[in-house]
């Protein structure tokens, strides 16, 4: 399947490990040049070198904390300046810590909303002027299957990601005139370090497959898919 991503430019945030890394690898595997971000400079540059060596595409490493309010605009501008264009934004950020709903503090709620709602809004806001110049403008935000079926021990994640869902569904309509698609990829359990650290167990998906599903949402074939939430959860979400 030709995804039409060759020579496109993609920014994938929080992509030095886990599902973000899988997305960057998948896009690079399809021929897109990618910018990767993460908190650890050593890790970001190592990952950038690995992707470059394996795929042959150009990879830009941008170390930094994407949840810092100034960081989304910085990485968007750095990517566009380096490559001269931006076609794809995969907005990802690390998930908040585990917490039951009645245990969360105000500070924890604010941090979760900042990381998993506001960060994505800031990224999209900054990226729109560049994406509007592309004939294959794609935004995919990584959320969670918890937007459709809350996970009891992840109350902070649940609340922030549902907020993002509501915002993104609205924003997708506003982006139609510019030809920019905006979709949410909603992973269930995947074999990542975060899942292991949270002590979650059960059948888990392959991060590589998740990355390829996101690459599809960013493809030329997905030109008519926008405003959707795509569950990638092995059928574990039971709601309609």
């Amino acid at each position: 399947m030709d995804l039409g991503l060759t020579e496109r430019v993609a920014l994938v945030t929080a992509s030095s490990r886990g599902l973000g890394l899988a997305c960057a690898e998948a896009l690079a595997g399809e021929g897109a040049h990618v910018a990767v971000t993460g908190r650890s400079a050593d890790r970001v540059h190592m990952v950038a070198n690995q992707i470059r060596e394996i795929t042959g595409v150009e990879v830009l490493g941008l170390p930094g904390d994407i949840t810092d309010p100034d960081e989304p605009a910085r990485v968007v501008e750095a990517t566009a300046a380096h490559f001269g264009r931006l076609d794809v934004l995969v907005a990802n950020a690390g998930g908040p810590p585990a917490a039951r709903a009645l245990e969360v503090t105000d500070e924890q709620v604010n941090e979760a909303v900042n990381a998993n709602l506001l960060t994505t809004i800031r990224l999209i806001r900054a990226a729109i002027p560049h994406l509007a110049a592309s004939d294959q403008a794609r935004i995919c935000a990584i959320t969670s299957s918890s937007v459709l079926q809350p996970i009891p021990m992840l109350a902070l994640s649940n609340l922030a990601r549902v907020g993002l869902w509501g915002w993104a569904k609205t924003a997708a309509q506003d982006l139609l005139p510019q030809g920019i698609t905006l979709n949410l990829a909603c992973p269930g359990l995947h074999a990542t370090d975060r899942v292991k650290n949270l002590g979650m167990s059960g059948p888990a998906g392959d991060p590589g497959d998740f990355g390829r599903a996101v690459a599809f949402l960013c493809s030329s074939s997905a030109s008519f898919i926008t405003g959707t939430t795509m569950l990638i959860d092995g059928g574990s979400t039971l709601g309609l």
Binding site: G188, R212, A213, D233, G234
Partner: peptide, 8 residues
């Protein structure tokens, strides 16, 4: 790539 996508 759709090995983990079902029931959607």
């Amino acid at each position: 790539a759709a090995s983990y996508i079902t029931g959607v």
